[in-house]
């Protein structure tokens, strides 16, 4: 059984211009211990997907217009807020891009970690403290027992992200959603945090959904990859397939426009244009205005995800014909 099943998820927002779909018909699944990478440019719907799964979007303005989220056999989309709160923490936890915005500046980090644990488990103050120190140790904060009484502003960005991870792990979640966990960090710290996430997966066997716009982070961590564009999943495959045999023109473009660390390229292969806002998405294939392979038919209907090769699905009318031999 899959740990998480997301089926046909469409989340809409009420805006000044009426209701628009931030994400459309998003489907994917996640097994225990698996790392799923979700990649796409900003505005492609990665965070909305994660927040919908977590049930964290304020409704209104948000509304789950279609689809369902099934976690551990339970349908989260129909769950009450109170039941949902019991899933967050021991079931699913989330960490965000900017740790400072999710940590409370007026409480010590120890208090914040202990509060998270206390919300789900009855433990004595002394045991709570011990668990908090344990967690800080696990995420690699040196002299954890001394740092417990520190406030968020007394820590570096990398340390704050470690504290966030400690909080997210405090209740032994089965699934950790990491939304751009290293985007605000320097590369040496990013490498440490990515190592840490992989170590934790190996140690506890939790599943991780890692959301990023960086193909390098995907290459480093993911088992399987979901590529999103303009609110839709346009390709899904095991990580090696995505890099060796991308089948969607957009995925190919994403890989080609990154400069190399070892080879000289005279010129970068850019994708013309920009990602459309939800209210201004073109009809048919959302990528058509930027796609060098677009045909008139591409703008007439939205291509659905199809299984083209084993474990490899893609949403492009011409994928078969354009696939490399």
């Amino acid at each position: 059984m899959n740990l998480l099943e997301v089926r046909g998820l469409t989340t809409a927002f009420m805006t000044g211009r009426g209701e628009v779909n931030a994400i459309e018909e998003v489907s994917f699944s996640l097994k225990e211990g698996e790392i799923l990478g979700i990649v796409g440019e900003s505005g492609s719907g990665k965070s909305v997907t994660a927040l919908t799964v977590m049930g964290l979007l304020p409704q209104p303005p948000a509304r789950v217009a279609a689809g369902e989220v099934v976690f551990n056999g339970q349908n989260l989309t129909r769950m009450s807020d109170r039941d949902m709160q019991r899933i967050r923490g021991p079931g699913i936890s989330m960490i965000f891009q900017e740790p400072m915005t999710s940590l409370n500046p007026v409480f010590s980090i120890g208090d914040q970690i202990m509060e998270t644990i206390a919300a789900h488990e009855r433990l004595s103050q002394a045991d709570l403290r011990k668990r908090a120190i344990d967690m800080l140790d696990k995420v690699g904060i040196p002299s954890a027992s001394k740092r417990l009484d520190d406030y968020p502003h007394q820590m570096s960005g990398g340390q704050r992200q470690r504290v966030m991870i400690a909080m997210a792990l405090a209740c032994n979640p089965k699934l950790l959603i990491a939304d751009e966990p290293t985007t605000a960090l320097d590369v040496t710290i990013q490498a440490q945090i990515l190592d840490l996430l992989m170590d934790l997966r190996d140690e506890f066997g939790m599943a991780i959904m890692i959301i990023t716009h960086n193909m390098g982070v995907i290459a480093e961590t993911a088992d399987r990859v979901l590529v999103m564009y303009a609110g839709r999943v346009i390709e899904e495959a095991p990580v090696a397939q995505v890099f060796d045999r991308p089948l969607h023109p957009y995925t190919r473009g994403l890989l080609e426009c990154v400069p190399s660390l070892t080879e000289d390229k005279p010129r970068l292969v850019a994708i013309p244009g920009t990602l459309p806002e939800p209210a201004r998405r073109p009809p048919g294939c959302r990528f058509a205005p930027r796609c060098s392979h677009a045909l008139p038919a591409c703008s007439e209907a939205i291509p659905g995800l199809e299984l083209l090769e084993p474990a490899h699905t893609v949403a492009c009318f011409r994928a078969q014909e354009l696939a490399p031999a």
Binding site: V187, T188, Q190, A191, L194, D195, M198, N214, M215, G216, V217, A219, E220, A222, V239, A240, F243, V258, S260, L261
Partner: peptide, 12 residues
């Protein structure tokens, strides 16, 4: 520390 550009070159 720069992330790998291909999963076969993972740095961890």
């Amino acid at each position: 520390a720069v992330p790998a550009q291909h999963p076969a070159q993972r740095s961890r």
